[in-house]
Design a protein around this nucleic acid. Structure first.
Lengths: 175, 175
DNA sequence: CAGAATAACTTGGCCGACCAAGGAATGAGT
DNA sequence: ACTCATTCCTTGGTCGGCCAAGTTATTCTG
């Protein structure tokens, strides 16, 4: 009688195997959470580390360079830098040579974070790869590299970013 | 004179190797973008697919069940369901048996999306794993599984979720 | 040299995701 | 029966991301 919660749709095949994509999604989320935790000590939010790292070793940089370096959307970087500036980690000023540009530089005080960030990365790396031997790590790096290339080719249409790809295939045999 | 952008901080060692963690971050982002693209055809945003999939094969469900199933924060699920409801993919009503709960169910019309979502997943899987043979895929799945377990144990403090873990180690030897 | 294209940001909007608090209903303890 | 703790959900805030438009400079034409 109680008509216990049944499938509402006629599942065609309902092959519930675990696509790697799902695992990637889960790992992505967990990894970000873990990153957030270890970065918290440095006072940064996940994502900001990449920008700061770039600034730390590039010195003053135009915003467009940062964007190219981290590969994010310009608006994302803008907002991130605004927060970073407000937090005192970064200093922004108009570029005298190109007045539509903005020069960004890590502040003195922010340099203290460098060590924290590197430590955080080390921790994260250890946490992520715990229990994997060298061979596994290398293998994982290799496979993730391939996956990254795949996705990069797929997300960026074709022209750019897909640097060393053929790009001359329009139809990917859909089987 | 042009004082060409130099490191602003005394980089200690500046070991710029590529930690797997960075690759994971990049892959995570790219994967999400790719997911967004393939899901767009179904009219869903990345993340919603998991909820809908659960609802499609579980029928009516309490919100708490969904939360447990997808493992997200309750507030995330609440907001997602509000949007899903507004989009007509889902129907919510108070649970008569437990008046603080909410029963959620996929709408009739949403069933049409099932096929799209499964197709999208297939596409995403293909894009992600393009060029990898069966052995590589299996290997990747295995390694990601380990990484997931690692991160899961790390993010969830210890008590819960770390189901089959020792959890009896407090100090993780540095170095 | 004027006008069009392009480059470099910014703003606003929207989403997923988190945390921190808070309001209801239910369940457990005494 | 009354209190107290739990559970379930919501609201509000903050962040990282994206996209779509818009603004201001610079450059590339004609």
């Amino acid at each position: 009688m109680k008509a216990q919660a049944e499938p509402a749709c006629p599942l065609p095949t309902a092959k519930r195997r675990g696509p790697v994509s799902h695992t990637v999604s889960r790992v992505a989320r967990l990894h970000r959470i873990a990153a957030g935790k270890v970065l918290k000590k440095a006072g940064l939010y996940p994502g900001q580390e990449f920008v700061m790292m770039y600034l730390w070793d590039a010195g003053a940089a135009r915003q467009s360079d940062i964007i190219k370096a981290v590969g994010l959307d310009p608006s994302t970087v803008t907002k991130m830098l605004q927060r970073l500036e407000q937090a005192g980690h970064v200093q922004r000023r108009p570029d005298p040579d190109d007045r539509r540009g903005v020069l960004v530089e890590a502040t003195e005080t922010s340099c203290g974070l460098l060590a924290d960030v590197e430590e955080a990365w080390g921790e994260l790396e250890d946490q992520t790869l715990a229990g994997l031997d060298e061979r596994d790590r290398a293998e994982l790096a290799r496979l993730l590299g391939r996956v990254e290339a795949n996705l990069r080719a797929e997300t960026a249409d074709c022209p750019e970013a897909a640097r060393a790809s053929e790009c001359t295939e329009a139809a990917e045999g859909g089987s």
